[in-house]
Nucleic acid binder design. Sequence first.
DNA 1: GCCAGGAAGCGTATGACATACGCAGAAGCG
DNA 2: CGCTTCTGCGTATGTCATACGCTTCCTGGC
Lengths: 253, 253
Amino acid sequence: MVVVNVDEGGAVTERNTEVEALPVGVAAAWGLRGRTGRGPKPVMSLERIVAAAVAVADVDGLAAVSMSRVAAELGAATMSLYRHVSGKEELLAHMVDAVFGMPPTVREDEDWRAGLTRRAWTLLSAWRTHPWALDVPIAGPPAMPHEVTWTEDALGTFRDTGLTDRERLSVLMLVSGYVRNQARLEAQVGEVGTNQPSYGALLRRLIDERAYPELNRLVSSGVLDDPDDADAEFSFGLDRVLDGIEALLRKRS
Amino acid sequence: MVVVNVDEGGAVTERNTEVEALPVGVAAAWGLRGRTGRGPKPVMSLERIVAAAVAVADVDGLAAVSMSRVAAELGAATMSLYRHVSGKEELLAHMVDAVFGMPPTVREDEDWRAGLTRRAWTLLSAWRTHPWALDVPIAGPPAMPHEVTWTEDALGTFRDTGLTDRERLSVLMLVSGYVRNQARLEAQVGEVGTNQPSYGALLRRLIDERAYPELNRLVSSGVLDDPDDADAEFSFGLDRVLDGIEALLRKRS
DNA sequence: GCCAGGAAGCGTATGACATACGCAGAAGCG
DNA sequence: CGCTTCTGCGTATGTCATACGCTTCCTGGC
């Protein structure tokens, strides 16, 4: 969490100001901070910096995203980035919001379940494409523009369901959290060792039948060995979540 | 993901070996790597290092956990840590497993729903006590001893439910993922700016009524202003998840 | 039109960090 | 007892984020 201001040197820095306190990157993302018009025309821009950083992360992972690496990708000097972004933390916040982009268009012919399902799949696709986003440290509540727009649109799918405002938001958080968690599990399993064909093979080396009878059975059944159909897994869990929401809606009508 | 081995100098290093490939920290955690008995009696130990690191993280957050900081807390030299841990990534893996510890004891008088509920609350408590654990980068599939034991015990709660092995695991991942996500949301909201009394106040500054009617209504209702009863929030979502699972069980019986 | 002020790019420098390498001494084994 | 193994740690290196300040470009205001 930083306070956003521009100092005497012109670089974007962090300072304690009564009126400007926002989570890192939020002011810039909402256009509350821009250039005055004076000075040389920038060759650089926040958008270009973010795009370069996302490209690095997509190829080499989050750990490869250093200010100097991003600058090198842009053919610029490291310190020039600081004219457009206050620091690495802000850059990361922009990167995450960038990869999720705008939500899918709202369709009036869909009921809440179909709407949420479609959104969940779109979200999952973004996580899968950019798994490094899972490792970006917590910076604050959802406040970046795309994030907020996803929430706004999704709240709309519950317009006529009888849920309270708080419940609608809670239900949304449940679904999007489920998507994130599935993406995380996929990323974890994707990190299985080079000499382990599967998660099952890994566990087989660690557990014994006496101490871990349930897992032993699971592992012996081969369930963890076959390359899971990640889509089916996702669907299964999503249906559980949506069934639970449906049970609530039934109570409300 | 590292390969675990001990090099000529005696420090724990990473090397490409056919037979020892395990996710970082797993071999050590399962006692597959220990000392031979030769050499001076160690003053240091993996357990002490991990405990010191957890203490630092609990007070100052994950970013404060540097090898030199942990060593300082132990009154030792930074490089001495490397005799017991291959690197920072391994240290982080041990830290996370340490804070979750052993799962609550299994109770035979509980049905699956009660059992899962109790476990969920215990898990949430650990996340709340150690929110830094949320920011530890993905290292591999769940393979650390405590983690595996939590899974084993929880699988037992579904023993006589008619679910397939794969379904049982999926359902477990759903619940534990829900807990993690709630902890994450709490941590995010806890990062609200110093000049924002609430998440609602933050959003109020960013959105306008025309573009964000749903959120505007939510914010105007004051729902996001009052200090949420986090426990009630958690309960609400957990019940949705468990209701969804219950719907599945009904189909299976 | 002029000029002061603001802004962009970036060179230089600093401190923090993770960890490689190797020395000295402690301890076990044959 | 000699040799091997292991522990603690000093020294060193490269990477990283970012503070500070210089030069040049450009605009807004008079």
